[in-house]
Amino acid sequence: MSNKIDANLVRHIGKLSRIELTDAEVDALGCQMADILEYFDKLQELDTQNVEPMAHAVELSNVLADDVQRDSLTAEQALANAPAREGDFFKVPKVLGEGA
């Protein structure tokens, strides 16, 4: 593992992503992430001083829709794939407190 990616960082990212990792996976993923970063280091060597930053790989802009209503799903359809429901609500474990 490179010095940029240590086991703690991999576990931290795993936690943020709600992914449980075994020690072996932490090692394997750490190496892969280090490889990716190394590749970016290589890209950093390019002179991009006169190149506009790119937000997207496709050269398109202003893909916009008019503000016109279309059909939505019914509550039944919306809830059809939910693991659990309570009336017409998606049911989740009790959330304490407000805000994210």
């Binding site: 829709a65 503000d67 016109v68 209503q69 279309r70 939505s72 799903l73 019914t74 509550a75 919306a78 809830l79 009336g87 017409d88 609500f89 998606f90």
Partner: peptide, 20 residues
């Protein structure tokens, strides 16, 4: 009239999960 990324109605106070 509609949401930002889809054309579901942007309206407050309707029964739950009817604009998705």
């Amino acid at each position: 009239k509609t949401k930002i990324f889809c054309r579901c109605l942007n309206r407050f106070g309707d029964p739950p999960n009817t604009h998705t």
